[in-house]
Amino acid sequence: MPTKPAGTLYRGREGMWSWVGHRITGVVIFFFLLVHVLDTSLVRVSPEAYTAVIGAYKNPLMALGETGLVAAIVFHAFNGLRIIAVDFWKKGAKYQRQMLWTVLALWVVVMVGFSIRHLSLALGGH
């Protein structure tokens, strides 16, 4: 049965959207982690099995996927440190907005650097 529409606690703006972003990136990273442990476990099956599966990952589509995954991880990491600051730093709640924009600025810097390096390695001839 659908629940009755009620007032909402969702307030929008930086506080809510960073929370939404943290949830979504967290779930994405968790499901990747399950698969990542399984594929790495193939080293225990045979060298050929592992190298074959990893070889199948080495294509341009996966290179973009890896970049997206790292983007999710870097956001989750920096925003996680912001959450810790909000919880433990006396002025954390007061400056949570400024800290989110700092998180996003650092995220852009790190991702520009990572993308240039990773995509030139992954997409460049070898």
Partner: peptide, 21 residues
């Protein structure tokens, strides 16, 4: 983990059984 496996040397090209071993 990401730095050592993806950004150093040949990056992702270096990852195979020997790399993990």
């Amino acid at each position: 983990h990401l730095f050592v496996n993806l950004l150093v040397g040949e990056g992702i090209h270096a990852i195979d059984f020997g790399f993990v071993a």
